[in-house]
Computed example of a mutant assay.
Amino acid sequence: MSVLQRVVKPTTRKGKKVLLKKEPQLIEESKRALFLYGRKASEKVRNLVKDLYNFKKPDALKLSRTHDITVFENAKPVEDFCKKFETSLFLLGSHSKKRPDNVVIGRTFNYNLLDMIELFVEHFEGTNEFPGPQILLGTKPCLIFNGPLWEQNNELKQLKSLFIDFFHRESVENIRLQGIEHTISFNATADGKIHLRSYKIMLKKSGQRTPRVELEEIGPRVDFSLRRSKLPDEDLMREACRKPKELKVTKKKNISADELGNVHGRIHIGKQNIDKIQTRKMKGLKKTSAERKAEKTKVLRAINANEIVQTG
């Protein structure tokens, strides 16, 4: 038996704008993340969720109450929350006897679960344990992934994609040097550990044009280890990464650009008779009297030669 879905039609201009905003856009805004807790959350997990939420703000929403959610057994409640609050990313913190200090990071596509990875928080030091200057709200971080395992292990490769989506903000083409203030380092070790470190980038005077760069750790300092994972289906992942036809760059013929950004175009025309091209009538292009006399003599000789041939 098929269930017909009710089509919502707007009755006001504001309602129409809300529905249009919910539809797929050619250029999407930065992804929003939902932070929530499971049945129970330890103090370590709560502080970690709070610190990551501060990094993600203002593109984030945190629910303070606990929820009876076990996302690996039933992902429907998380999907409903993501649909309700218009978030495509989620981070669930929980604590139980079987899985203590647990964090699940995942994402949805079209309000359906796409992928998620469960992490065990082995060690944690919050931002309040690092005295010093903190970053400003909404700062775009620079992400660094150390180690070859991020490209060799399928789970780590998917976790890297999740971290990039999680901390990614609006896309920019140019950025000034003073705008790089925050960096987050992810280090994957051979024993299955993931070390997360956060630094503030300090630009010091060096006596030269290029400043001296120093890193000051501002927290949090977290050591993760992998637990369970749900990798995405290939067809669903391909559909989620598909670009609209309107955004695909089509190569234009006979148009190229050099290293300086100048655009050059080539045009193809037929063979031209340069002698008959009308040039600008200026004094410098006029024939001299000697040239006119020589041309007249040449014409007369040609006429005389033609007459001699005909009489002969």
Rank of each mutant, 00 (worst) to 15 (best):
Q5G: 05
V8G: 00
K17E: 08
Y37A: 09
K40Q: 13
K40M: 09
N54M: 12
K57F: 06
D59I: 09
A60W: 02
T70V: 11
F72D: 01
N74E: 14
K76P: 00
V78D: 03
F81I: 07
K84Y: 13
F85S: 06
F90C: 02
L91H: 00
L92I: 12
L92S: 02
K97V: 12
P100G: 04
D101K: 05
V104L: 08
L114N: 10
D115M: 12
D115Q: 13
E118L: 12
V121F: 06
F130E: 03
P133G: 03
Q134G: 13
K140M: 04
G147D: 03
P148I: 09
W150T: 05
N154Y: 04
L156A: 07
K157Q: 08
K157H: 06
S161N: 09
S161I: 07
L162P: 00
E170F: 04
L177N: 10
Q178F: 03
E181V: 09
S185C: 10
I194Q: 03
R197G: 11
K204S: 10
S206F: 02
V213L: 15
E216R: 15
E217F: 02
L226I: 15
D235R: 13
R238S: 12
R238D: 09
C241M: 10
P244K: 03
E246V: 12
L247H: 03
L247I: 07
T250G: 01
N254W: 12
I255H: 04
E259P: 00
G261D: 02
G261N: 02
N273T: 05
D275M: 10
M282W: 09
M282G: 13
K287N: 13
K293G: 02
A294P: 01
A294S: 13
V299Q: 08
I303L: 12
A305I: 03
